[in-house]
Simulated scan of single mutants.
Amino acid sequence: MTKLCANLTMLFGEVDFLDRFAQAVNAGFKGVEFLFPYAYDKQQLAEQLGKHGLVQVLHNLPAGDWAGGERGIACLPDRVGEFQDGVGTAIDYARALGCKQLNVLAGIAPAGVAPETIHDTFVSNVKFAAQALAGAGIRLLIEPINTYDIPGFHVNRTRQALDVIEASGSENVFVQYDIYHAQRMEGELAATIEKHLPKIAHMQLADNPGRHEPGTGEINYPFLFAHLEKIGYDGWIGCEYKPASTTAAGLGWAERYL
């Protein structure tokens, strides 16, 4: 059965963030995800989840200066201490929110640093985070992100994420498979998902081009949803798209799943 969760960072942007939990419930969602919780008191967020009976499906580890253009720090050799501190902060929030999986954003590969050093830094940080999260009963996810939207992003294909998982030696690391990013970088969506299903713990969606809701672009979402049910994917799918107009006006595609 297809389980959709609302990405509160992307959806319901017309209302204050703390009011988006109610909007998600009113739209029929039973779970939510968002980029970062750290600007809010964790108890404040936990109260919203409890009040509306929502599952906190996912959020990211701290990712540096997002407003300043950083898109993760896990591959940056000079930020390892900051990354490790962020893991502790993320676990603290995840426990308060009942969140069972956290995503690590690799970040943009720094100029002037050997590719091997960047890779080794990311693998080491993933290993550290996976071990810390395992002790808290939380899974670590790696998300490949397309290099059209974020030029230079260190992990941009499914195979790269799987190679990092293997190199980490940890059984507590999985792929966050974003259909939109995967379509832009590699295509072969159905075959790739089926081949690597045991290592895919979470999925996200948006159509292409435009990163709007399903039905606005080239991706055959009715086929993909039927395929996911056929192969037995039982995780959540995060609706991480930019509504073409308003969220409510564009939710017709999701009625049968909500």
Rank of each mutant, 00 (worst) to 15 (best):
Q56H: 14
A248Q: 15
L197Q: 05
L54C: 09
L35R: 10
D19P: 02
G238H: 00
K199I: 03
A111Y: 08
I138S: 07
D207R: 04
A67T: 06
R20E: 02
K230L: 09
L105P: 03
Y257T: 11
V25M: 05
C99I: 07
D178C: 10
N26I: 13
A190W: 13
G64L: 01
Y38R: 06
L189T: 07
P110V: 13
E213N: 10
I231A: 05
L58W: 01
L251P: 06
A94H: 03
E171T: 10
L133K: 08
N26P: 02
G107W: 06
S170I: 03
P115R: 04
A24I: 11
H227P: 07
K199Y: 05
Y180H: 13
Q204G: 12
E188L: 12
K3M: 10
Y221M: 03
A109M: 03
H119G: 04
L54Y: 06
G152M: 09
G152C: 14
E194I: 04
Y38D: 06
E188T: 13
S170F: 06
E229V: 08
A206Y: 09
R211M: 03
M185H: 10
K51H: 08
V173F: 07
L76G: 01
K51Q: 14
A6K: 03
G64R: 00
Y38S: 14
D85L: 13
I108Q: 00
T117E: 15
G31H: 02
G81Q: 14
I237D: 00
I165N: 02
A226M: 08
L35G: 10
N172Y: 07
L197V: 02
F174A: 06
A27G: 00
A130P: 04
D85T: 08
K3D: 07
F128I: 01
H196E: 11
Q204K: 07
A109D: 03
T147H: 13
A114Y: 05
G187P: 06
E213I: 07
G112M: 05
F122Q: 04
R159S: 11
T121H: 11
R159L: 08
N220E: 02
A74F: 15
T147Q: 15
A111D: 14
R20Q: 01
G238Y: 02
G137R: 13
A46S: 12
L224F: 12
D207E: 14
P144F: 10
D65S: 11
R95W: 01
L133N: 01
G137S: 09
D92Y: 14
A114R: 14
W253C: 12
P222G: 05
R95Q: 14
Y40G: 06
P222K: 04
M203Q: 04
Y241N: 00
A74T: 02
I193C: 02
G210Q: 08
L11Y: 03
T121D: 13
R157H: 13
F36H: 12
I138F: 02
N125V: 01
H52P: 06
P77E: 00
L54E: 04
K100F: 09
E194V: 04
T216G: 08
Q56K: 14
A39E: 09
G28I: 03
L189S: 09
E229T: 09
